[in-house]
Design a protein around this nucleic acid. Sequence first.
DNA 1: CGCGAGCTTGATGCCGATCAATGCATGTGG
DNA 2: CCACATGCATTGATCGGCATCAAGCTCGCG
Lengths: 255, 255
Amino acid sequence: MAGMEPSRNLVPPKEGALPPIQPDALRSACSNCTLRELCLPVGLSPEDLEHLDRVISKRRMLRRGEALFRAGDRFEALYAVRSGFLKTTVSKEDGREQVTGFQMSGEILGLDGIGSAQHTCDAIAIEDASVCVIPFEELERLSREVGELQRQLHKVMSREIVRDQGVMFLLGSMRAEQRVAAFLLNLTKRLKARGYSSSALVLRMSREEIGSYLGLKLETVSRAFSKLQQEGILAVRQREIEILRSEALGALANE
Amino acid sequence: MAGMEPSRNLVPPKEGALPPIQPDALRSACSNCTLRELCLPVGLSPEDLEHLDRVISKRRMLRRGEALFRAGDRFEALYAVRSGFLKTTVSKEDGREQVTGFQMSGEILGLDGIGSAQHTCDAIAIEDASVCVIPFEELERLSREVGELQRQLHKVMSREIVRDQGVMFLLGSMRAEQRVAAFLLNLTKRLKARGYSSSALVLRMSREEIGSYLGLKLETVSRAFSKLQQEGILAVRQREIEILRSEALGALANE
DNA sequence: CGCGAGCTTGATGCCGATCAATGCATGTGG
DNA sequence: CCACATGCATTGATCGGCATCAAGCTCGCG
């Protein structure tokens, strides 16, 4: 039932908002990709795009639960999500682990590996997914020639740092309900940029994964959802969430 | 009493471990800098170092409490700490703020600004400090020519991302005492790399700043120090900390 | 139909926040 | 030099939010 279709159970996107998947095509092409305005190629000229196409030659399909890379793996490439959802997790020796992020189409994974030539976290598909493989040595070489690409890569890395700062703030200073509110707002913002509704969504991750990301136990996440529903801010039916009063959600998250 | 001397009340470094300060010199030179093995220039050849010297032409002195940059400031440069300590903080509109990091000599500040051309956090000197100014446009240009520099810049950014993942783990899954233990171990590790003792240190930040960084209240930080002292793991006298049983501290932080 | 994974809901307990008082070091003016 | 103010740290008492433990519940699926 799950099959390999992308993003099936998200709220239907506007026309053409998501790329059609061609499971057979082994070559990707940034030039034609409908994600190019959200992904690494933002702002590249058509000629530069062609150069990039030559570097990003491979794709990789992942079944739900499969790892794109694991901590300790040799770092060789960055990955751009084409379809599906992934999570990244860090873990201590003793096995305790924590989700550090969820990635959707157009977002880049693997930046953690550059510093030490090894990945420092696991990247796992939380639904069937497809990613573009971006061999890093070649990307570095090309970005030495294409200033705009260099700039774009730097921006992607910088934004990741800023995102992490936001999560640190959330983990350090917000209460459970606020964290959940902020999480939902962040998700809908990113989904909206991809053509999805900003008031309804289907969560691709379990309560436990959300809790792990937000520094909460799954029961607490569940209670927060229930509370927000009681207050008339959300309508929650399992993983389907409807945001009834987004201004109230925003107000909550901002204090 | 405080004056402009660097790092006065840290445990005395081994010979030559910290750079002498020449308050009058307006030019810095990576080629001669004793921090070059900890800072951006790691691994650069003498010739490449000379190129870098041409880009990093200015220094800036900061008094305790002074801001290097603030959220919203136009992003123009990265900064490398020469001496002294800084902190970075993010804040919400309502004024609540949280410390996201402490930076010591050889560490780079300002990476947050690349993505949006504006800084997204404040960087404040928590003691008199001196930084090298690295104009970013010029750094980007030079790193297009010098592959080793490009690589080094990417590493610095990637390590910042990994560092943040570690903090997220700490904030999401560790208890108060563990957080304090991990904090101390992290500080001593970095100080050791700079030639200081790994078993004694003087904190440059207040209990409140530590708490803000660790997602705790200052009273909780204080209690954690007291507890660790009772247990014979630390000797605490105000901001002077001596680590008596570092293996116990490590064991605590790792579970 | 019955099983199991994931979600919800309730009862209880603990860790850390909060409120409050005291201690300690440094600085200032009389 | 003392009296006093100020900023920071310690310690105690109390409170509240979230974790923990423990049932039920829902839904998809063999």
